[in-house]
């Protein structure tokens, strides 16, 4: 389970009062921004690009390590690390597309990416050891009242997540390249006839989604403690969020991320972290049984692309 180093809500003597609930909700919304961003990136890969990427969580985890290690162990400056992480992710995305995500059969993709996930987790185990790492940043908090506060880092991450997502959607809707991506996703052959180099466009789209992952990973590292199993839980959350929103629906994924963030925060605060995961997964299965195409999608629109 991800352990948040800078936004843990002290259960100590705090009664479950209204202020506490508001606090949970507010924190949940802010957290939800990051959930939304990572889920939207995965949703894009899965729904639009039709890649079932099950190494997703592991990639996020590895990104976090790559952010932590150079800064904490080797004393690299922040800008250099950021560039390094972004470049690494672009290369990783490209390699994945050429190898593991090459076959068109979805099940083979699932299997290969799960294998890749195992590889990444164990490589992390081997190189970084399973000792949890975090930056131990002291969070500046802004206090509305005595019990309700928000962390400034959290707020920044939330705003950045939203901005990236909006920016991405605008890119898709307003630019020629974005238009080409949407066209290729809907009808690859005809897009080719118009002169679009389909494979290159897909590479580009995939790399963009990996950049989004990179940025999300960097942000996560400022707020969470990482260990090699961090990614697995995060990936499960991403699944829940994407399915709830309907795969391929980006804004919906963000909204769903916020909702799940709030729900998660409330469960942790009221019931305690012990049963948090089982409850969340149970909700997930129920959603799958009742409205598998997404809460925001009508039943007829199966996996709409962007």
């Amino acid at each position: 389970m991800p352990r948040c180093s800078s936004c843990c809500i002290e259960r100590g003597d705090v009664l479950v009062t209204l202020t506490a609930i508001i606090s949970y909700i507010v924190n949940g919304i802010l957290m939800g921004g990051l959930y939304g961003l990572t889920s939207a990136a995965w949703s894009f890969q899965c729904g639009a690009l039709k890649f079932a990427n099950f190494a997703y969580g592991a990639c996020i985890m590895f990104t976090m390590y790559l952010t932590y290690w150079p800064i904490a162990m080797w004393g690299w400056p922040l800008p250099l690390t950021i560039v390094f992480v972004l470049a690494f992710n672009v290369v990783l995305g490209w390699v994945m597309r050429k190898t593991v995500l090459r076959p068109n059969n979805r099940n083979t993709q699932i299997l290969c990416t799960m294998g890749l996930q195992l590889i990444i987790i164990n490589l992390a185990n081997f190189f970084f050891t399973s000792y949890p790492r975090d930056f131990g940043l002291l969070e500046k908090r802004f206090y509305f009242t005595e019990n309700i506060s928000i962390g400034l880092t959290q707020l920044f991450c939330f705003v950045l997540s939203g901005a990236i997502l909006i920016g991405f959607q605008l890119f898709l809707n307003k630019t020629w390249t974005g238009r080409a991506i949407r066209a290729v996703v809907q009808n690859r052959d005809v897009a080719s006839l118009m002169g679009v180099k389909s494979e290159r466009i897909l590479d580009l789209a995939f790399s963009i989604s990996y950049i989004m992952i990179a940025i999300a990973g960097i942000m996560l590292m400022t707020m969470f403690t990482v260990d090699p199993n961090f990614g697995t839980t995060w990936q499960s959350y991403a699944f829940i969020i994407c399915i709830s929103a309907g795969i391929g629906n980006l804004y919906g994924a963000f909204l769903s991320g916020l909702i799940i963030g709030v729900v998660s925060s409330l469960i942790k605060g009221i019931v305690g972290p012990f049963y948090h995961d089982p409850i969340l997964y149970a909700m997930f299965v129920i959603i799958l049984l009742l409205r598998p195409y997404g809460i925001f999608n009508k039943a007829e629109n199966v996996a709409r692309t962007i």
Partner: peptide, 9 residues
């Protein structure tokens, strides 16, 4: 896992 991936591909 590498063996698995190679075989699958």
């Amino acid at each position: 896992a590498l063996v698995l991936i190679v075989m699958a591909l």
